[in-house]
């Protein structure tokens, strides 16, 4: 097995995910691109498990499982935020999210 093949696959997937995070305006599509990046990291971990003989066997695969759990938690909270944003503003465009408006709104109330 040539480890360079999955490693290069993972690097390209990570680049695609970064491109998607910066390019997309729809929040759900941004989350999909984040999933691509997380999966690239998983592929690196699993491949490293085959190439590096660690003291503890299969550490890379255990870490990959942990990353999958983290991704599940992230997507749950992320989608809750996105749906709440949609309920408030009727749009999920990340460009339109007001980052500084909250304090003035609170003062007006």
């Amino acid at each position: 097995m040539r480890p360079v093949i999955p490693y290069v696959t993972a690097a390209l997937l990570f680049g695609l995910g970064g491109y998607g995070v910066l390019r997309r305006r729809n929040a759900v599509l941004v989350l999909m691109a984040v999933e691509l990046m997380l999966n690239a990291v998983n592929l690196v971990l699993v491949t490293a498990d085959t190439t590096v003989r660690a003291v503890l066997p299969h550490s890379g695969q255990v870490f990959a499982l942990f990353v999958i759990v983290l991704a599940a938690a992230e997507i749950g909270v992320g989608l809750a935020i996105v749906l709440q944003l949609y309920r408030l503003r009727a749009s999920v465009t990340v460009d339109d999210v007001p980052l500084a408006e909250r304090s003035s709104e609170g003062a007006a109330r």
Binding site: Y7, V8, A11, G15, G18
Partner: peptide, 9 residues
């Protein structure tokens, strides 16, 4: 994206 992807590759 291309910089990070190709650089890592």
């Amino acid at each position: 994206g291309a910089g990070s992807g190709l650089g890592l590759a």
